[in-house]
Write a protein that binds this DNA or RNA. Structure first.
Lengths: 196, 196
DNA sequence: TGAGAAAGTTGAACGGTTGCACTTTTTCAA
DNA sequence: TTGAAAAAGTGCAACCGTTCAACTTTCTCA
């Protein structure tokens, strides 16, 4: 177990060296200007090893430290205060989440700028974010007392997640987010079947 | 004009030969099992020529015959009958459009099945469909008497277009489409600023 | 006619990704 | 303890979509 500990430590160290080298090079020269061969060299491993550690490929190197925010999404729905609708809770959570992360780490701004200016990264970030759609839909359904695969719940989950990207691309993101969630809130609340 | 006609005819013929060869091979063996070098060979041109005709790459070969449906979207909004809301008009248009195309061409089913089962093609189809978002948003804004970049209009356009994909992936697509558009309709109508 | 645009060709490259063969590490039963 | 054999890690070479550079052919039109 001590020796297998060493093995796992080495594995983690290699992974970290790859992610660190990649992020440094990406921020220095831009995502598209750095090749995987160069990253592997900088971490002193082979290209094959790089892909063993990051099977999702080059894009995944960027998001290695991204925390999993699925739990926060679910909690925002199921532990929301009384009198707050589901869309209201999600809007609030997304607003707070954004400002919190921006204030937390100063380097985070440059990181976000790189993602915004690289189509491949925007696409991958969107896909990662939308992975939570199913879980969110189920949380919404459970909360509303509807079957877990009710189409409206999935639609609301999908639209709420996309609202973030949609608003982000605008000049006045906060206003846009409010406006979009107003639509969702009215639509959701008025079409919701009666609750117990 | 006759001579320039010949040139353009040849160009169109080459393009058609590429699209035909590609579609035939794709349907025979699957999109991922056919390489661009093979397609170019089958059409008796070089790979570079293939990319000259289809700058969007391999995926674009599949959608060569896809008609442009942007005009129909705009018309559905701006020429809708009185008393019909924008979301209602869009839902109706998408429903009719779907059944019309399925009944029109028997080979169409296999074509759709190939797209559904190939992630790269699903992604590209979605991107093509969403290209109409801006135009649709402007049509909605014009109809509602709002500024062309009003966030709610863009959101409605985006959500309405995505509703098609969202419903398509379900067991009961028609029911899902109705349910989703109910949400959008209620949300849109109830948050709409007063009209003249 | 002859300059020039447009289309095509070839061949090679590039960058991300994967397959295959090889070496090292770990396991575990004799 | 030892000695396969499984598991994990490694590197080279290849594959695939895509692009580049240099050149030829074909068509256009003043």
């Amino acid at each position: 177990m001590t020796e297998s500990g060493r093995r796992e430590r080495k594995k983690a160290a290699t992974r970290q060296a790859l992610a660190d080298a990649a992020l440094r090079l990406f921020l220095e020269r831009g995502y598209d200007e750095v090749g995987v061969r160069e990253i592997a060299d900088a971490a002193d491993v082979s290209v094959t090893t790089l892909f063993k550690h990051f099977p999702d490929g080059k894009v995944a190197l960027v998001f290695d430290e991204e925390a999993d925010r699925e739990a926060e999404l679910i909690a925002a729905v199921s532990e929301r205060p009384a009198r707050q609708t589901v869309p209201q809770a999600l809007r609030r959570m997304m607003t707070e989440e954004r400002s919190r992360r921006i204030h937390a780490d100063p380097r985070f701004a440059g990181f976000l700028r790189m993602i915004d200016s690289t189509p491949a990264l925007r696409e991958y970030a969107r896909r990662m974010w939308l992975r939570h759609e199913q879980a969110l839909a189920e949380a919404i359904a459970a909360d509303a007392g509807l079957p877990p695969d009710e189409p409206g719940c999935q639609a609301l989950a999908h639209f709420a997640l996309e609202a973030a990207s949609l608003a982000h691309e605008r000049k006045a993101p906060q206003d846009a987010l409010d406006r979009i969630f107003d639509i969702l809130d009215n639509g959701w609340s008025r079409t919701l079947p009666e609750r117990s």
